[in-house]
Amino acid sequence: MTARSFGPVIVVHGGAGKAATDVVEARRAGVRAAVMNGWQTLTAGGSAVEAVEQAVKMLEDDPAFNAGRGACLNRDGEIELDASIMDGRDLAAGAIGAVKRIVNPVTLARAVMEAGGPILLVGEGAQQFAAAVGIQECAAEALVTERQRARWTALRQECAESVGTVGAVALDRAGHLAAATSTGGLPLKAPGRVGDSALIGCGTYADDQLGAAGCTGDGEAIIKLTLAKTALEFLREGEEPMEAARRAVRELTARTGAEVGIILLDRYGRIGVARNTAQMACAWIREGNIDPEIFD
């Protein structure tokens, strides 16, 4: 029996982990706004790539999330950002790592993808590319929130709250899939550290023949199992999307004990979501049910 396509679908997440009580509602509101933004792009005839970029940009602009403005600070008290995006039509992908002073890293990742050269640019090379394509830098302090500065100071003494990545996966009216991910990384991370969010197949993957997936959580563990691609291979084996997501998280938990979450779509637009963390704010919209479904 052939699965039926559900038409346009978009799913977003705001990161796996335990959020402070004062930001839980802010994140629920944030994923709702982001999924609505991506859905509007899809219903206006936009592509899946455009939809995931627009959704993730909204999360990057929201200081409640660990991406763009509001990202966590590294060991030196600076913000370094990772992001990636992938187009399931032709496996085109773009990613950036350890960039500074860029308001919307996902847009820079898309520019890398569309340039058609290297897939991953990091550090100063990524900054130079941004300037070459007209993506302006902002002041470093423009990305730092009072909350994250206070958190950095506290975490230097004792780690407490855990926050993750943001991301989106979408299926457009033409049946094409895309995924995008963005993050500030780990609190107090070593300068120059790049996690799974910038690595295609680890934090992000999209293939029209399989599905689209986005991951969040312990980046080093996600890298070890190339989690996004692994989850999609479970779809190839015939797993239903929800079970594929759960199986991927179970396997990573068994092998590493790390905390992670994943969102995915199969090529028919069926949704899979799983986590082994206390929370993972998510929202989705699909054709025939345009009121966002939101859950933690």
Rank of each mutant, 00 (worst) to 15 (best):
V24C: 12
K57H: 09
R28M: 12
K18D: 13
A26N: 13
A20G: 14
D22I: 03
M58S: 12
T43V: 11
A48L: 07
M36G: 11
K18A: 15
L59Y: 04
V35N: 04
A26L: 15
A51M: 09
Q40D: 15
T41V: 15
Q54C: 01
R32H: 08
L42Y: 05
A48N: 04
Q54E: 10
M58H: 10
V23W: 05
V35P: 08
M36H: 04
L59P: 07
V56A: 11
E60P: 12
D22G: 04
Q54G: 03
A19T: 13
G30C: 09
G46L: 07
G45F: 05
V52M: 03
V52C: 06
S47Y: 01
K57T: 12
T41L: 06
A48D: 05
G38K: 00
T41H: 00
G46H: 04
V24Y: 08
Q54Y: 00
V49C: 12
G38H: 04
Q40F: 09
K18E: 15
R32L: 10
Q54N: 10
D61K: 05
G45W: 09
A19M: 12
V35S: 07
A26E: 11
A26M: 07
R28I: 13
M58K: 10
T43G: 00
V49I: 11
G38F: 02
A51P: 08
K18R: 15
R27N: 08
A55T: 03
A19N: 14
A33C: 02
E50S: 14
L42A: 07
V31H: 06
G45Y: 08
V49T: 15
V23H: 06
V52A: 01
R27G: 09
G46C: 07
A55H: 00
A20L: 14
E50M: 04
L59V: 04
A19R: 13
K18L: 15
R32S: 14
G46W: 02
E60K: 11
D62M: 05
W39I: 05
N37P: 00
A44P: 02
V56N: 06
L42T: 04
D22R: 10
E50R: 02
D61M: 00
V24K: 12
V49P: 08
A33L: 11
A19Y: 08
T41F: 01
A33E: 13
G38N: 06
A55V: 01
L42K: 08
A51L: 08
R28Y: 03
T21I: 11
V52W: 00
A26S: 15
V35E: 05
N37S: 14
T41P: 00
A20F: 07
A26C: 03
T21K: 14
G30L: 09
V24H: 08
V56H: 02
A48Q: 04
A55C: 08
S47W: 05
